[in-house]
Design a protein around this nucleic acid. Structure first.
Length: 827
RNA sequence: GCCGGGGUGGCGGAACUGGUAGACGCGCCGGUCUCAAAAACCGGUCUCAGCAAUGAGGUGUCGGUUCGAUUCCGACCCUCGGCACCA
């Protein structure tokens, strides 16, 4: 312990005290996490920010403060805590800024990281600053590239033509985030799909594991629900249809094979490879036109027109394998090429989309489900209308008209049994099989952009795509003149001939470097692993260290990352686990999320609305502790909350009250006095438990109750004050350290033992019990806590106001819930 | 349309497993101190009636279960977030 600061004897001067303790923590490396320590570890993680030019948003500290409180408490409870911070610094704003000004993104990034670091430090977070990382650092992205090569080597990275968002007026590819309501975010121009060769990561290979393993982790239910939805698993069957007068067979995917009896036509997606093969001569030109039209539809049109069905008849017929009836094959863009087989059997009687389509094009509708009576009533639909095919019935019921002369009869079966029996029959006949499908798509991993990790591959005409050898990593981003994507939509790197042209690492002949870069999500997909060993030059992290620290015990972040970052990083970790590079399959044991911080009045904070709150200004005026506590007091942690400048006053008064209480009271040594035992122990219990459930607003309210209660006394016991300062310290660490020192300690409070409560003090000697008559509170009695039930009931009957009501009738029932309530039922 | 939140005083919000609805804070009202103000402190503050004791009503709406419902069940309304022709 060196250079212990001077004690401030003046008034609560937040600027001086904040600075004093922030310097102290930094000099002493108070919050350094120790690798492979004997202590039990606790890995506490918050999402690292993108260091934007605007500086820290007041939303960031909501998450950081909450987990800082948790980290500080865990340290005091004896854990070896890893609470790291870093910067997810590849990103579009820096690149766009470079396009506008010509200033290299690395310069902007460095400046912004410095500003973020200053701001984060000014809030007193207990990060281990020795482990700070930035995804743009070549020492970091060396390993991002290395991991990509593992994906490539295991066959999970592949290149294919994929439609991307293309702005017709800017002539560049756009990220999904840049497409707002189907229009280009910058120029408002039309956005269309354009096919470009893209690197893909096969996340679909992990769909089942990503879904299954959700059972093994403690994520908020809403987070799990969103991931489950996004993965979108469905069970069904692939069924093959012969095409009339052709050798071809067409496979469709359906979740309802039982409705094969009601299939009256088929639909192919316009992109389906069969369309041109099977279309009749007469229909060919019309079909070609339809394919062209639907390809040119913009995102906007697609979503706007999604309710109006379009389509065209191919003129060809398929044979329904269940009854050998010929049914027409249509093409329509309501069938998506990317899901299932890109072709469907249409059952208009029992599928609303097929119904709409059949109505529009006058196709037959054949009802094969007799509706469930209760549901009919609920939906207020006439059974006759369903049976005649006038109304679509996508709900429950039993099968009718559903048997064939090939030994299948599912009549009178409910949906589940009918599906099961039909699937078995299809498998036996060898014309179908049970199949599982997912909505999850492979991850488009290429960007035709400058400010990202270069994809470390070289193309050779003889060898194909070849990995850059590990010794040549990282492939650093070269300097460029211009940052704009090229006219062809390629990355600006494509213009650097000296860089692009290289030799094939395998055969030594001419080769060309890949000029695509990785998406923003790359660096953040594994950063939690790098924090464990941030300076390692030989591996992305040492395996023993990973074994000690992983999994992350608690990860908090925004709901907006649930389906992208959270899923991607689980995927990367699972992949690395399967390769034997990390010791555990699920990276995060627990995941919570915070609500957004909105501007005053509940609107989203934005520069255009002019309602942005700058954390610097608040810290300047009230100090870091007030800022932190206000962020926690603003409302329930997982719900959105509106900033209210007036609301800070309450916290500011509280902090000052604490200051005065300690500075102005006479403090005597000795035990906690008896009359304070209840409030002290009650507060310890509530604070300890509610930090774990992130109910920070109620913890603060309890700390306020505590101060209100004990400030009734002029003389304070040192033991009471010490206990309180320990409980306060995770929330308001600066003032807690200062007052801890003031009452005579020379070591930081950060590693003091967290107080335990003693249950014996939580029982009050006398308790107040309300008395209800017929469920309405009429009176109350104050009695000794050890009084027996009979005595209590008798006392209750004798209570003045209660007696008045009891006299009006006779007691038919007496209910006594110990220590809670008495209720007399009087007739 | 589907999935998931939320709806409680003037405001932010409390309420364990069905047991005194409105903790804590803001604001407001009154008071102390002061020439005055600020700060600080003390008291009050769901609505209606009443000097009060007390009584009636009250947690989005309607209905149900219960001695007792913000909490459980059914139907619905509003609102926020996510997904969206996923067969």
């Amino acid at each position: 312990m060196r250079g212990h600061p001077e004690i401030s004897m003046k008034e609560f001067d937040h600027k001086k005290i904040d600075k004093k303790w922030q310097d102290y923590w930094e000099t002493n490396k108070t919050f350094r996490a120790i690798d492979n320590s004997e202590k039990e570890k606790f890995y506490c993680l918050v999402e690292f920010p993108y260091p934007s030019g605007d500086g820290l948003h007041v939303g960031h500290p909501r998450s950081y403060t909450a987990l800082d409180i948790l980290s500080r408490k865990k340290r005091m409870q004896g854990y070896n805590v890893l609470f790291p911070m870093g910067f997810d610094s590849f990103g579009l704003p820096s690149e766009n800024y470079a396009i506008k000004t010509g200033i290299h993104p690395s310069i902007t990034t460095k400046k912004n990281i410095e500003n973020y670091t200053r701001q984060l430090k000014s809030l007193g977070f207990s990060f281990d600053w020795d482990r700070v990382i930035a995804t743009t650092d070549p020492e970091y992205y060396k390993w991002t590239q290395w991991i990509f090569l593992k994906f490539f080597e295991k066959g999970l990275a592949y290149k294919t033509k994929m439609p991307i968002n293309w702005c017709n007026s800017c002539k560049i590819g756009l990220a999904n985030e840049e497409v707002v309501n189907g229009k280009c975010e910058r120029c408002g121009g039309e956005v269309v799909k354009r096919d470009i060769e893209q690197w893909m990561l096969k996340i679909t290979e992990y769909a089942e594991k990503l879904l299954e393993d959700l059972d093994t982790v403690d994520f908020l239910d809403k987070i799990k629900a969103q991931q489950i939805n996004w993965i979108g698993r469905s069970e069904g069957a692939d069924v093959t249809f012969k095409i009339k007068d052709s050798e071809e067979v067409l496979t469709v995917y359906t979740t309802r094979p039982d409705t094969l009896f009601g299939a009256t036509y088929m639909v192919l997606s316009p992109e389906h490879e069969f369309v041109r093969k099977i279309t009749t001569k007469e229909q060919m030109s019309a079909v070609e036109k339809y394919i062209k039209d639907s390809a040119q539809k913009s995102d906007l049109e697609r979503t706007e027109l999604s309710t109006v069905k379009t389509g065209i008849n191919t003129g060809a017929f398929a044979i329904n394998p269940i009854n050998d009836e010929p049914i027409p094959i249509w093409v329509a863009d309501y069938v998506l090429i990317s899901y299932g087989t890109g072709a469907i059997m249409a059952v208009p009687a029992h599928d609303t989309r097929d119904f709409e389509f059949a109505k529009k094009f006058d196709l037959p509708i054949k009802c094969i489900i007799k509706p469930n009576k209760e549901l009919l009533e609920q939906e207020s639909i006439q059974e006759q209308d369903v049976l005649k095919g006038k109304v679509c019935w996508p709900f429950d019921g039993v099968a009718i008209h559903s048997s064939n002369d090939k030994d299948l009869n599912i009549n009178d079966l409910d949906v589940d049994s009918a599906v099961k029996k039909t699937t078995e029959w299809l498998e036996k006949q060898n014309i179908g099989k049970a199949t599982v499908n997912y909505k999850l798509r492979d991850w488009i991993f290429s960007r035709q952009r400058y400010w990202g990790e270069p994809i470390p591959l070289i193309h050779c005409d003889d060898c194909g795509w070849v990995s850059v050898p590990e010794k040549d990593l990282p492939v650093e981003l070269p300097e460029v003149e211009k940052y704009e994507p090229t006219d062809t939509g390629e990355s600006p790197l494509a213009l650097l001939e000296d860089w692009v042209n290289t030799t094939c690492p395998k055969c030594g002949k001419d080769g060309k470097r890949e000029t695509d870069t990785m998406p923003n999500w790359a660096g953040s997909s594994w950063y939690f692993l790098r924090y464990i060993d941030p300076k390692n030059d030989d591996e992305f992290a040492d395996f023993d260290k990973l074994k000690y620290w992983m999994a992350v015990d608690w990860y908090n972040g925004g709901m907006e990352h649930t389906t992208l970052h959270l899923l991607y990083s689980r995927f990367w970790n699972k992949f690395l686990y399967d390769c034997g590079f990390v010791p555990i399959s699920e990276p995060y044991r627990k995941r919570t999320s915070h609500g957004m911080v909105l501007g005053e009045g509940g609107e989203k904070m934005s520069k255009s609305r002019g309602n942005v709150i700058n954390p610097d200004a608040v810290v300047e005026k009230y100090g870091a502790d007030v800022f932190r506590m206000y962020e926690m007091f603003i409302g329930p942690f997982d719900q959105a909350a509106a900033w209210d400048t007036k609301g800070i006053t309450g916290i500011y008064r509280f902090i000052n009250k604490v200051w005065r209480l300690v500075k102005e009271s006479e403090i005597q040594s000795g035990e906690i006095p008896d009359n304070q035992q209840f409030i002290v122990n009650d507060t310890i219990k509530k604070v300890t438990e509610q930090i774990e459930s992130l109910d920070m607003n109620t913890v603060i309210s309890q700390l306020m109750i505590f101060i209100n209660e004990i400030s009734k006394e002029k003389v304070q016991s040192k033991a009471t004050i010490e206990t309180f300062l320990k409980l306060l310290s995770p929330f308001a660490p600066h003032i807690a350290e200062e007052l801890w020192q003031y009452i005579g300690h020379d070591k930081t409070i950060a590693y003091e033992k967290w107080p335990d409560f003693n249950a014996k003090y939580l029982k009050q000697d006398t308790i107040v019990i309300p008395i209800q008559i017929n469920g309405k509170v009429r009176d109350q009695i104050e009695i000794d806590a050890n009084t027996g039930e009979n005595e209590i009931l008798n006392a209750a009957k004798a209570a003045k106001n209660a007696a008045k009501y009891l006299a009006k009738g006779t007691i038919v029932k007496e209910i006594y819930v110990p220590n809670k309530i008495i209720n007399f039922v009087v007739r």
